[in-house]
């Protein structure tokens, strides 16, 4: 057990180090601006005095390391600073949107993970058959589709032609859960189609890999049923790679929401970020980028740790 604790601790330390360096990059990005935030904010109407006052107010007169410490301290307390566009607190802007984004990604995960696992196991069982080949072509294609293409096809069919779902996902803070899930179903389906292909391909590959090993052949020579072989013998050893793929795709979901949110005008973090990039509202973009990057890094780290923990070879001391 000692070994595994050490490995996990190493991964966590590495993840924290990466988080720290990424936060440095995001914070330093603003300094690469031609001019500075205050000039950006006041534009043509800037005078030397107002610039001076503004710099003092947001702390631009301090040295870079001090400013970084302030910024990081603020983020840890949930204070991201003030938006350039409308002067509101960024934490206020982000607040409910962050929850919406996680809700959407979570909904997509609930649909896509079981679906991908089932499809992957079926493809592995009936490999090289018609089903497998069909699935292969469909997944290879859907990996190469842009997200907005899938989104608009779904809108055309499910919402315009058949009228099953609304094409805009205007959920608010007080929307009840059932209605919220109904309105978010179309964006969630789009995300599902984007990630299912990759997840099921990996599941299929890892199961096929296992089915080729001698102990599975032994089991089938003993006369076991196919389902028993898969569920009792193959699956326990396949968990590690499958869990890894699932978590990696969750990380992808968190980032993939950006385009989908814009298509469906879903009030999430991605839409806010794109909006702020258009307005060049740097503090908001900075805040969104740090949240996305942190989630992504933490999920990747979790995938690493889970693949260590679920590896049966590491669980037994030598």
């Amino acid at each position: 057990m000692h070994n595994i604790v050490k490995l996990v601790a190493q991964r966590m330390a590495l993840g924290l180090l990466v988080l720290f360096i990424v936060s440095l990059i995001i914070a330093a990005g603003v300094d690469a601006l031609p001019g500075d935030l205050c000039q950006e904010m006041q534009g043509q109407s800037a005078t030397a005095e107002t610039l001076e006052a503004c710099r003092k107010e947001i702390g631009l007169d301090k040295a870079l390391p001090l400013r970084y410490a302030d910024w990081l301290g603020g983020i840890l307390k949930g204070d991201f600073g003030v938006s350039l566009a409308n002067g509101r607190q960024i934490s206020e802007l982000i607040g409910s949107r962050l929850g919406n984004t996680f809700f959407l990604a979570g909904l997509a995960a609930i649909i896509s993970v079981p679906l991908a696992l089932a499809l992957g196991i079926l493809a592995a069982l009936y490999r090289n058959g018609i089903y497998d080949r069909g699935v292969n072509v469909v997944t290879l294609s859907s990996i190469s589709f842009p997200e907005f293409f899938i989104a608009y096809i779904l809108i055309l069919w499910l919402s315009v032609n058949w009228g099953w779902f609304p094409s805009l996902s205007n959920v608010g803070g007080d929307t009840p859960l059932a209605e919220r899930a109904y309105k978010s179903l179309l964006p969630a389906l789009t995300l599902t189609l984007v990630v299912v292909a990759h997840m099921m391909r990996m599941t299929r590959a890892s199961i096929i890999n296992l089915l080729a090993s001698p102990y599975i052949e032994m089991a089938s020579l003993k006369g076991m049923t196919k389902s028993r072989i898969i569920l009792k013998h193959a699956l326990p050893n396949a968990w590690a790679p499958i869990v890894n793929v699932v978590v990696l795709n969750l990380a992808y979901l968190i980032v993939g929401v950006v385009v989908v949110e814009v298509v469906f005008v879903y009030p999430g973090l991605g839409e806010l970020m794109v909006d702020s990039v258009r307005k060049r509202d740097i503090p908001v973009v900075q805040a969104c980028a740090s949240i996305f990057a942190a989630t992504y890094i933490i999920l990747n780290m979790t995938a690493d740790i889970l693949s260590i923990v679920t590896n049966p070879r590491l669980l037994h001391p030598k």
Partner: peptide, 8 residues
């Protein structure tokens, strides 16, 4: 590579 490309 630790930062998602689209966000970066």
């Amino acid at each position: 590579m630790a930062i998602p490309a689209l966000i970066f």
